[in-house]
Design a protein around this nucleic acid. Sequence first.
DNA 1: TTCTTCAATCTTGTCGACAAGAAAAATACA
DNA 2: TGTATTTTTCTTGTCGACAAGATTGAAGAA
Lengths: 244, 244
Amino acid sequence: MTDKNFVGAGMDDSNQNHALERKRGSGARQVYDLLRDEILDLRLAPGSAIDEVQLATRFGMSRTPIREALVRLAGEGLIETLPNRSTMVSNIDFLGMHAYFDALGLMYRVTTRLAAQHHKAGDLDSIRVHQAEFKAAVEAQDALAMIATNADFHAAIAAAGRNEYYARFFERLLGEGRRMLRLYYQSYDDRLPSRFVDEHEEIIAAIEARDVEAADRLGRAHSEQIEAQIERLLTRHDRLDIVL
Amino acid sequence: MTDKNFVGAGMDDSNQNHALERKRGSGARQVYDLLRDEILDLRLAPGSAIDEVQLATRFGMSRTPIREALVRLAGEGLIETLPNRSTMVSNIDFLGMHAYFDALGLMYRVTTRLAAQHHKAGDLDSIRVHQAEFKAAVEAQDALAMIATNADFHAAIAAAGRNEYYARFFERLLGEGRRMLRLYYQSYDDRLPSRFVDEHEEIIAAIEARDVEAADRLGRAHSEQIEAQIERLLTRHDRLDIVL
DNA sequence: TTCTTCAATCTTGTCGACAAGAAAAATACA
DNA sequence: TGTATTTTTCTTGTCGACAAGATTGAAGAA
């Protein structure tokens, strides 16, 4: 809500100038990655228009790779493209927030369960690495880092669960919802209780012990806790902005 | 390059000639829809190469809209594109079959539950229409129609559940897995027991009665039955082709 | 002034052309 | 004869240009 969105034409030199030679197949990928980050970190405000030629000049390439990146982003629902008309950054679906966190919670549970069942040797190392990063982010009170590292943590768990379909869906949820998660974290004033870190530790322990029931219980607790907080957030939110 | 347009050298005249005027924004959509269908109905064999120029001449349009369609298909995992090299129809992931049906079964349960909770006035009508079509397809022993109408039936239930995220994931699973489902149905020799139709009826009844527990139980039964059949299918399959 | 109609402009969708990599073919070499 | 190297060909990735549709702005009528 208190977001400044400079989408202005060519201004700072941070990252628009790429006149230097880039590898052949990587144009669209580069644009895709950067735009995705800008959208998910709310640096591109929801609803703001996206101009292909502007992006083309900004990235110093033709409209074609830009277009490919936009098609991919549209496929993930991050931008919306009116036929023959402007394309814009998708709005955050506040009404679907409950549904979103319901799905997210279910994925927490399912992936944690499966990880407890199917994890193999190196999986726990990977999970622990991400947990350490998450812990550091929480201690540093860096909301963006918390979201990213939390997503990585759970993505690692999902990978250990050995189900590509859940993993892909989960990663997509974690990505697509980064903007909603941003609001969620803001409901804690970006200072996450250390309890969250502890819960992660318990989850790791349950997975390591291959205790499926404990894993499920923890995943469910994690999820229900989020649910409750979202409930608080939504009621508060409904009062603040009467949306449209 | 120069135009190499041999009249007789192409394939048959079934549906490649679209020199007639088409609406402006619909080129890619048209290609996407048709290619998707051809892939999912196994008319395009997994692993077979996809040539952009060939498609361009076949559809009578430039490579640009073809390319957009391919990007979208790749985003859904239906084709795989090696950088700077050929793109090909994705292989069916037999190893992930168990994972696939696990996810599918969970979605059966979740969406049925939610439909029992949240369905509104017109939802049941839509569901019943699709159920009637499914029944007709089963009686006609038309496997492709069974897959399509079954997908529509469950998609309608998912829509009644009022959770966009589950619905999208579910639809994606049902679409993406049409090829696997084809095999699954073939394990019944494309003659589905009428019990499947009856199960659908029970599901409808549970939803209408808003009996969440019954809905969940039925969804679970549906899912477990699939699971069992897949188990039989897989063991039989593992014995027949030693993959690779 | 306000509403309608038409022209200017802007953005997107599509096209043909060209260059870069890679695969296939042809040649040289042991 | 078999292998390494060069050349040819083929496919993809990128580009600039143009047309269609939509938006905006101006001009005209009430």
